[in-house]
Amino acid sequence: MRWWFKARKGHMLLPLALAVFAVALYVMQDTTVLLPALVGSPRVALSLFVPIPLIAFLMAVLESRLPAAEVSGVRSMTRLDNGLVTAVVAAAVLCSILVASLEGTGAAATGGRNAMFLTGLMLIGRAWAGQAAVMIPVGWLVTVVLVGFRGNLPRPWTVIALPADNVFAAAASLVVFAIGLAAQIRSSRKTA
């Protein structure tokens, strides 16, 4: 397992990814900006964009593999990949809870939930688009900014723009993440 983790470059990339995530969440937690939109002119929290570098690092780790050797091997790498993704997302949730408790703001608490939702989207897309699926969470963010607000109120389908205490957003994040892990089983077995 240690060789698998080193082959994935997890020992270098993941600590850096979590550090970038935590620092960015701490710095941007309550900052809002006025962004152009097709519907209204919403003030969008910059913390919505914080999970993107984490997801990019995670995709780099998942894609740094030898597909033919892993498919023909005796051990299934799918369990290890799913464990790795789950551990990274759990660490992101813990980072966001820690930053939220230090600063006492709800915006930081959404960082982990949003990382879970966007990672799930990426994993679902990875099953059919491969490494290009790293752009799906970015596309979701752009869509949310362009048409996801009614005035300054986020629409329910946006999930990531909803407040930290929103039960629907938490449930949707868990469901999308679970579907992403299931899709990961299929994409980890592909050789091309």
Rank of each mutant, 00 (worst) to 15 (best):
L123G: 01
L46W: 07
G10Q: 06
V85T: 07
I55N: 05
G73M: 08
E103T: 15
A182L: 15
E63M: 08
V23M: 08
L102K: 06
W157Q: 04
S96E: 09
V175N: 08
A133D: 08
M12V: 14
V20T: 12
V145C: 08
G120N: 02
A60C: 09
G106Y: 09
Y26S: 12
R75A: 13
R75V: 14
V88C: 06
P36V: 11
G10K: 07
E103D: 13
R65V: 11
K190H: 13
P36Y: 13
L18N: 00
I97G: 08
A182N: 02
L181Y: 06
A127K: 07
A68L: 14
N166K: 04
D81I: 03
P67D: 01
Q184A: 15
E103V: 09
W128C: 11
R79V: 09
I52K: 00
L48C: 06
A115Y: 08
S41F: 12
P36D: 08
A132M: 12
A183P: 05
W157I: 04
G111W: 08
P53F: 10
S76V: 03
L13Q: 01
N82W: 02
K9T: 07
L153R: 14
R186F: 14
I124F: 05
V142P: 00
W157G: 12
A107L: 11
A90H: 03
V71L: 13
